[in-house]
Amino acid sequence: MTTDPGLWAVPIAVLGGAIRVSTPFLFVSLGECLTERSGRINLGLEGTLILGAMSGYGLSYLTGSATVGVLGAALVGLVYGLLHGWLCRFKGVNDIAVGISMMLLGMGIAFYFGKPFIQPTAPRLPSIPFGWWSDSPQLQAALQVNVLFLIGIALAVFLAWMLRSTRIGLTIRVVGDSTQSARALAIRPDRVRLWATAAGGALAGIGGAYLSLYYPGSWNEGISSGQGLMAVALVIFARWNPINCLWAALLFGGAGALGPALQSVGISEGYYLFYAAPYVLTLGILIATSSTERAVIGAPGELNITK
């Protein structure tokens, strides 16, 4: 045995897990964050995620380029987001309900057209070895980072800045907070929401491509176990703040690695309960940080969910 990390394996695995598993959560929640800041909810991003995973993998296989796969997934997500945005323009159409139906439709389309791509092996996305400085193979493995993860972090910072300090950000926020004041400012709320939903869809599509093209790096019908739905919910946890979305995604990814890591060091009784760690931790933090006085701080005023 060259290096036995012993109990150190657990924090290393949590670090690795946070890096590996968090990216889809990050992209979907950033996308949803943008959409919700414009005052609309797209609950169907689980469908977009799976659609992105399928189209990313399929395109990568057909073209031989994983990058094309990612871009294709983004495009598919964008178009799918546009559809949601367009449908919700009509008076009396409920955005949450449309989202749920689109979740169904997205999964359906992905599974329908994804059958021929389950068996073939497509080119995957490469990783950057950030652990070259360490002798520990565990740490080296944990620090294998995909560029999408880095883009995701940059995107979180960018979105936070954009929403706070740019004209576009202001426009989105105004639309999200009050349709009437937006109209008063000669902003067309439907158009802003349309593009905010489309952008959110594109990000969710990229999240899906990460699933199928990097980690776990496989296309099959069980590729997403509800990550998309969870990520949408995490936006509430993150209080509609992109930076918080990053922390939430990292927390979720890292805590998810706890279960296997603990088993690997011999703590295996009650593994189901360890696997629930991300949910328990998130709920705990949620309860600890919520209060009735500032229940909906940061929540866009036009959001269906917080009215």
Partner: peptide
């Protein structure tokens, strides 16, 4: 009691 959003709480639970 705590102002916890019911959507995410119910999903986590």
């Amino acid at each position: 009691r705590r102002g916890v959003n019911e959507t995410i709480a119910s999903l986590l639970m």
